[in-house]
Simulated assay, not measured.
Amino acid sequence: MGDSIKENLKELIFLLRDPDTKSKQSAFNACYRQLTKAKDLASWETIVKTIKSETGIEFDSRIASNMYGRTKRKLEKKLSLRVKINEEQNSTIKDRYNTEKNKEVKLESRKIENPGDLKKLRSRTINLDDLENGD
């Protein structure tokens, strides 16, 4: 089990050792998925013990859990914002489609004054899926 935890924490350990990494929190942010897998395999105490033995960085399980929680909330907020944006875009697309469809219906329902228009109307194909309420 220890090897699989190390395997999941490999990227986090690399980032924590890297002097160019801005903070422990940024490393946790970058390795959220791997931390989630490691968390499913072991406790925070075991995870922190592994990180300490590989990096020499001192922090406790409460701090690690807190940093993980911050990352989780941040990602959930981004996800809910994406969902909201997608719903708004879909709503706009549906509104635009319905508006265009209504324009087509209004154009087709005008009074026919020219015999040529009647001939065009007769030769037009009708899609049964487009008909509503048996019209």
Rank of each mutant, 00 (worst) to 15 (best):
M1G: 13
M1I: 11
G2I: 02
G2H: 01
D3F: 14
S4T: 12
S4Y: 09
I5R: 05
E7Y: 15
E7D: 15
E7N: 14
L9S: 05
K10S: 10
L12Q: 11
L12M: 10
I13N: 01
L16H: 07
D18Y: 02
P19I: 06
D20L: 06
D20H: 04
D20R: 05
T21S: 13
K22W: 02
S23C: 08
Q25C: 03
Q25S: 02
Q25T: 02
A27S: 03
N29L: 09
A30W: 05
C31W: 08
Y32F: 12
Y32L: 10
R33C: 04
R33F: 07
R33P: 00
Q34S: 03
L35D: 01
T36N: 09
T36W: 08
K37G: 00
K37D: 05
A38K: 09
A38S: 14
K39N: 09
K39T: 06
D40I: 12
L41M: 11
A42R: 08
W44N: 12
I47Y: 01
I47K: 01
V48C: 04
K49G: 04
T50R: 05
T50G: 03
T50C: 10
I51G: 04
K52V: 02
S53D: 12
S53F: 08
T55D: 03
E58I: 10
F59V: 03
D60R: 04
S61A: 09
R62L: 09
R62H: 12
I63C: 03
A64Y: 01
A64Q: 05
N66I: 04
N66T: 05
N66D: 06
M67E: 09
M67C: 00
R70P: 08
T71K: 14
T71S: 15
T71C: 14
K72T: 13
K74L: 07
K74A: 09
L75A: 07
L75H: 11
L75W: 09
L75P: 07
K78A: 11
L79H: 08
L79I: 10
L81E: 15
R82M: 14
V83P: 00
V83L: 15
K84E: 10
I85M: 14
I85P: 03
N86K: 13
N86E: 14
Q89S: 07
S91C: 09
T92H: 06
T92M: 07
I93W: 00
K94L: 06
Y97R: 15
Y97N: 13
N98G: 03
T99P: 00
T99I: 10
T99K: 10
T99W: 06
E100Q: 05
K101E: 06
N102T: 10
K103V: 07
K103L: 07
K103H: 08
E104F: 02
E104R: 03
E104Y: 04
K106E: 12
L107P: 04
L107T: 11
E108N: 11
R110G: 08
K111V: 15
E113I: 12
E113T: 14
E113N: 13
N114T: 08
N114E: 10
P115C: 03
G116Y: 13
D117N: 11
K119D: 02
K120D: 10
K120E: 13
R124M: 11
R124Y: 04
T125W: 14
I126Q: 07
I126C: 11
N127A: 02
N127W: 07
D129Y: 05
L131R: 01
L131S: 01
N133V: 13
D135V: 05
